[in-house]
Design a protein around this nucleic acid. Structure first.
Length: 499
RNA sequence: GCGCCUUUAGCUCAGUCGGUAGAGCAGCGGACUUUUAAUCCGUUGGUCCCGGGUUCAAGUCCCGGAGGGCGCACCA
């Protein structure tokens, strides 16, 4: 990035270097500064002095504020400027007759983007804006690269993702969304921790990536000279911990799936998985419902209604419930019956009626039918209950209805938000399910993982009845922050290595 | 993988029928002691994404390629 500047950009950088040299010769090196005694932030100051009347001064109290200089308006022997910090922005005011010729020149030699610490008092300007009257300042870092347009910011989507640091500097809403993401995750942790769960970390590098259907990334460990896979779920290891007696565990961690990249998929994404011994799927549903309402209340500031696109989605409990098979039947006017859906030929026929391509497996066909028939109707938060066992290889069968499992998925805005079930703890049944998967994999479904036989062995030591849940954090954040692309809730979405 | 759109100054964007590159902001110089997209005067700045082709002449038309966005397909 240092040798290939265009002439025009090089000239802008050169001008900034001249200003840096002038600062160095007059007042010392900005890059030699190591700290600044910041004692407030812009947002706090604006709140504290809200009552000031126009042109009123609060001279007795002096403050130290630091941040990035984002605009400068010189008016002869005074300068107005805007300082941004992580809480917002505040106007600065400097007078030549107060700080002297050299320091005024220093202030004037600062460029848009420079980092500065300012000391002074608050007043309200003639036109009504709360402003820090600067009595002293220290340049704490020089920006050599020119910033994007002060009014339009950085619009180029590619540059915004590749140079997120610039995007964050000039586009306030990006920072706001990322802060919201942070708050959603910490709010989630607090809610979960309050119920006695242990947060754990399980390996990312695995010999066999299991617990979901997805193609894994491959890597290699030199010390062992072995090929390893990056995890596609945390499920199997977390259940090993339940076997081990930890009873309540969760992990918020990065998952890797070597598949498509689009507005709802990034190759690495963040998932919460949580397991609770002695709960069943109904306990988990209640927990899930309470968690979602809690997060919505925190984000929407006391309301359970969220605006998503041009819709309002209400997270007030209780959420709607619908059966997986019942729902498909209902939204097909009774045409797609349980009997047809649970029969491989019947499901294949429905696929053709819908004009969809053939699926390699029965389970795949069911997913496609669900996606086309039921999912488009799931706008308000809805628990879809009682999934067929053939698409749920790790869930416990329903007592009295062995074709179904005790499982639900929560949908909102036609998007899956969570997936939960009563965990299968019968090792013989689990072994049989894995063996059935080997057959499906042989039919050409490359996303079905190799069985993790040690997991079956773990179950042989005895696992208490347990409920588990997985929540895709990125998609949840998309919903809660009203973003339509996953890239806009990721600080550094994956881009091709060219730019 | 397929389709549509897009790429012009540091940034945001114009660029007509093919006639030889424009604006605003930023920068630089100047005026200005309560401005706020400050204002006013002057001014620098271009690999028109890359490579071919057609043409007297290509930012513009044609072909190929690259990056990016969106949609479809794929993706529990």
């Amino acid at each position: 990035m240092h040798d290939d500047l265009g002439k025009s950009e090089a000239a802008l950088v050169a001008a900034r270097r001249e200003n840096l040299a002038a600062l160095r010769s007059r007042s010392g090196d900005p890059f030699a500064q190591t700290r600044y005694p910041v004692d407030t932030h812009t947002h706090e100051l604006l709140a504290e002095y809200e009552i000031l009347a126009p042109e009123e001064k609060a001279e007795s109290k002096r403050w130290h504020l630091a941040g990035r200089l984002m605009s400068k308006r010189k008016m002869g022997k005074t300068i107005f400027a805007d300082l941004h910090d992580r809480t917002g922005k505040m106007q600065l005011y400097v007078r030549k007759d107060e700080i002297g010729e050299d320091r005024f020149a220093d202030f004037n030699d600062m460029d848009r983007g420079d980092i500065v610490g300012v000391h002074g008092f608050v007043f309200r300007s003639k036109l009504g804006e709360l402003t820090l009257h600067v009595l002293d300042f220290v340049v704490l870092g020089k920006a050599l690269a020119p910033l994007p347009d002060k009014w339009h910011g950085l619009q180029d989507v590619e540059k915004r993702y590749r140079q997120r640091y610039v995007d964050l500097i000039v586009n306030d809403d990006v920072r706001d969304t990322m802060i919201l993401r942070s708050r959603i995750i910490s709010g989630m942790r607090r809610f979960i921790d309050a119920q006695g769960f242990y947060e754990v970390e399980t390996p990312t590098l695995l010999h066999v990536a299991g617990g979901a259907a997805a193609r894994p990334f491959l890597t290699h460990v030199n010390a062992l000279d072995e090929q390893l896979q990056l995890r596609i779920a945390t499920e199997l290891n977390l259940k090993r911990l339940i076997v081990g007696g930890m009873e309540r565990v969760y992990e918020i961690g990065r998952i890797f799936r070597n598949e498509g990249i689009d507005t709802t998929h990034n190759p690495e994404f963040t998932m919460l998985e949580l397991y609770c011994a002695y709960w069943d799927v109904h306990d988990m549903l209640a927990f899930n419902e309470a968690l979602m309402e809690h997060l919505a209340l925190e984000i929407a500031g006391g309301s359970t209604d969220l605006t998503v696109g041009d819709r309002t989605i209400s997270f007030a409990r209780p959420f709607a419930r619908i059966g997986y098979l019942d729902g498909i039947a209902q939204y097909s006017d009774g045409k797609y019956t349980r009997q047809r859906l649970l029969d491989p030929d019947g499901a294949a026929a429905i696929l053709r009626e819908l004009g969809l391509p053939d699926s390699p497996t029965h389970g795949h066909a069911l997913d496609k039918i669900f996606e086309h028939v039921l999912e488009p109707h799931l706008i308000q938060p809805t628990f879809v209950m009682d999934y067929p066992v053939l698409i749920s290889p790790l869930a416990k069968k329903k007592n009295g209805d062995p074709e179904l499992v005790d499982r639900y998925e929560l949908f909102a805005n036609c998007m899956e938000l969570s997936n939960a079930f009563t965990e299968l703890n019968d090792p013989d049944d689990q072994r049989a399910r894995f063996e059935a998967q080997i057959a499906e994999r042989a039919k050409g479904d490359a996303e079905i993982p190799e069985p993790d036989w040690d997991f079956v062995h773990a179950l042989e030591y005895g696992m208490p009845p347990t409920a588990g849940i997985g929540i895709g954090i990125d998609r949840l954040v998309m919903l809660l922050t009203n973003q339509s692309s996953i890239r806009d809730v990721l600080l550094f979405p994956l881009q091709r290595s060219h730019g």
